[in-house]
Design a protein around this nucleic acid. Structure first.
Length: 666
RNA sequence: CGGGGAGUAGCGCAGUCUGGUAGCGCACCUGCCUUGGGCGCAGGUGGUCGCCGGUUCAAAUCCGGCCUCCCCGACCA
């Protein structure tokens, strides 16, 4: 967050801290039995409250503090979270009960009002069936009809058949086992509401995205809602990427969403590439527009048009502008984060005097993407050049980073284009150079999007749900206080200690959440936070309080560390660093294990039929051969190594070729 | 855009074949009870059965049309 302070403006999250002071104050009296303030109003007021100016500088926190204003499951948040599928638990025995789970924001720790009816007894209610049936029955005027559910025999039989099938299904899904769950252990009571990765990778991905509360479907195909938990990841990624972009000399700006049709049509190759997926606005203010407006699929057309106006002299160069925005591409097949009709991204657009400078810029940003992906997301990537058929519409050369996903398919996670002078020509960008010659500048563009979140999920997640790399985790640690056995009030001993630990860790700059919901048992909370990928869980119970210690449990393997409370912040920092490293190494190993070098086309096909992954093979440079391989194996050239690749025979024709990476693309 | 599957309560589903009272589990609400890996008991709330039309005394159910979502294939970040 340190880099985002703007001179003369208050820090936004200073205001957030203020919100939290109010929140704590709000909660305190409630525990003593006073009526709670209306949560939503309190929160709302807090958000609008005056931001607090805080001194800049000082010790930079090890991890940026979270924007806690909108995290679900956090105290007082008005949103509730609902979960999906349930499965039969094996140890439920004959009862065959189906289980439920649900999260909500915490209610008061103690009842605010005395129980109704004196001793908490519920007055006897009229016995009625559920649902609406009884209402109609009242109306049918037949007082003799029994209350409760009655069905004609044949319907009753059908009903039982249905229920049996349901139970059979539940039992069957259990006996199929847990696949390759890294967290599976004896007596694991974690319910499987997530399809195992090994069973159906696509379904696993969707389950995780929805149930970990990252996103939800909207009313329009391909337009998802990024929920607070998911958006928090994006914000953290944004902060990190934005810093890297600025460190390399760029500044942010914003260009319009609507692009006149004529603008888009100026670059031939560009418009051909994008017109199939363009959304058009043809009516405004109730009238047909004279010229249709494209909703930006990318902003080259708009930005280059403006650059034409702005650039007169070599002294105006380079222009180094980045923009954070949404774009729309009308996709036929959509998946949350990976391919959505509307998505959020960052697009940089630069102008340079020489080809060398443009190329240097293109490669510099490729390196920014590579380091961001590997250092921040712990997502290892291959990087290199795209083939002609895969390059950006209108570009001279396209470079990319590609990550290998768990199902053996490659994900393009960021691209950087040297646009040559194509766009300068098309949009009439000219300037007087140092020799007083009229000259066209060289342009570049580069982008990364919310798709990276999809890559993040698939790179690290397991059968228990998400695994968040510490650097982008909305919560780096969640504190689960464990109530005392028998009668003890956890308000007295455990919670105060837990709050103290939370404050200590927050003070050390960690993103911390204290899960003090009292309507859920600890086991439920464990599973819940595991599903959402929180890197470390901090347990603190009566035994721990007595020993002045706590337990830090790692998300990946549930390894436990018993840590004295005095050194908990330092230890947590080490553990998070370690986990960030481990996640990267683990993913890197996976990529290495699934990169196969082949010398015959038969081997190529065999690998694509079985394990897939990256295939390193010779290619003679002929687009026809590339197309043939795609046709026959689904694999495309993902990356041509920066040095052009080793000289080896072409895997199809046997002619002289260069070694390139193939894979099936997302 | 082709092939497959699905729209019934917040979620997961039965019921549709054979038209005749809107159901189950969980979630949610209330009270009690529990809490070191998804507690338990009791009582409650909640649904124009995706939309439009048709057949019928009567449609979640039969017929026609439309829409949406998911999965697998051809294009893209």
């Amino acid at each position: 967050m340190g880099g985002l302070a703007v001179r003369g403006l208050p820090r936004v999250h200073g205001g957030q801290d203020d919100v939290w002071a109010r929140e704590r104050a709000r909660r305190a009296p409630r525990a003593l039995g006073h009526p709670a303030l209306p949560t939503v109003r309190a929160r709302h007021r807090g958000l609008q409250g005056t931001a607090v100016l805080r001194p800049r500088g000082g010790t930079a926190p090890r991890y940026p503090p979270p924007d806690r204003s909108c995290l679900p499951g956090d105290d007082g948040h008005p949103l509730r979270r609902r979960l999906g599928a349930r499965h039969l638990r094996p140890d439920e025995g004959a009862a065959g009960r189906l289980h439920l789970e649900h999260l909500r924001h915490p209610g008061p720790a103690q009842p605010l009002l005395p129980p109704r009816g004196g001793g908490g007894q519920v007055p006897p209610a009229e016995v009625r069936p559920r649902g609406r049936a009884h209402l109609r029955r009242r109306q049918d005027g037949d007082p003799e009809r029994p209350l409760g559910r009655t069905l004609p025999d044949h319907r009753l039989a059908r009903h039982h058949r249905g229920r049996d099938r349901r139970l059979d299904h539940a039992v069957a899904s259990l006996s199929e086992g847990t696949g390759g769950a890294s967290l599976t252990m004896e007596n694991d009571r974690v319910l499987k509401e997530i399809t195992p990765k090994s069973k159906d990778h696509s379904q696993w991905y969707l389950d995780v995205v929805l149930k970990a509360d990252m996103a939800d479907y909207g009313p329009v195909k391909g337009c998802m809602i990024i929920k607070p938990y998911g958006y928090s990841v994006w914000e953290t990624m944004q902060r990190d990427m934005d810093r890297r972009i600025k460190e390399t000399g760029h500044v942010n700006a914003y260009f319009p969403l609507f692009i006149p049709k004529s603008f888009l049509e100026k670059e031939q190759e560009h418009v051909e590439g994008f017109s199939p997926e363009c959304a058009w606005v043809t009516v405004g203010g109730g009238e047909e527009l004279e010229e249709p407006l494209a909703i930006r699929p990318t902003s080259e057309a708009m930005i280059c048009s403006m650059y034409a106006k702005w650039v007169q002299s070599w002294r105006d160069l380079p222009i180094l502008i980045n923009q954070w925005c949404n774009v729309v591409r009308w996709e036929k097949v959509t998946r949350p984060f990976l391919r959505t009709t509307e998505f959020l991204w960052q697009e940089g657009h630069t102008l340079h005097e020489t080809e060398e400078q443009a190329e240097e810029e293109t490669l510099r940003m490729l390196e920014v993407y590579r380091s961001f992906s590997e250092e921040t997301l712990a997502m290892p990537v291959l990087w290199g050049r795209k083939s002609e058929s895969e390059k950006f519409a209108g570009a001279l050369r396209t470079y990319t980073i590609e990550a290998l996903m768990g199902d053996g398919k490659a994900l393009q996670a960021g691209t950087s284009h040297n646009l040559g002078q194509h766009f300068a020509t098309a949009y009439g960008i000219e300037y007087l150079d140092r020799d007083q010659e009229r000259t066209k500048p060289w342009s570049t563009s580069w982008g990364t999007s919310t798709r990276m979140i999809g890559g993040l999920i698939m790179t690290h997640g397991d059968d228990a749900g998400l695994i968040m790399p510490p650097k982008v985790a909305p919560y780096q640690v969640v504190i689960v206080p464990i109530p005392p056995r028998k009668g003890g009030d956890w308000n007295e001993a455990i919670l105060p200690k837990a709050r103290e630990v939370a404050e200590t860790l927050r003070g050390a700059g960690f993103r911390v959440h204290l899960d003090d919901r009292d309507q859920f048992q600890t086991g439920y909370k464990y599973s819940d936070w595991e599903m959402r990928g929180v890197p470390y869980r901090l347990e603190i119970g009566p035994k721990d309080v007595a020993k002045e210690q706590c337990v830090l449990v790692r998300r990946t393997d549930r390894h436990k560390d018993f840590v004295p409370l005095t050194g908990v912040a330092q230890r947590l920092g080490e553990l998070l660093d370690g986990l960030q490293r481990d996640l990267f190494e683990r993913a890197k190993q996976f990529t290495a294990d699934n990169t196969t070098s082949v010398s015959s086309y038969d081997d190529f096909k065999e690998v694509m039929r079985t394990k897939r992954g990256f295939i390193l093979a010779g290619w003679n440079g002929d687009p026809a051969v590339e197309a043939q391989i795609k046709e026959e194996t689904k694999a495309t050239i993902r990356v041509i190594p920066m040095d052009g690749g080793r000289e080896v025979p072409c895997v199809v024709t046997g002619e002289k070729g260069r070694e390139v990476y193939f894979a099936q693309a997302y």
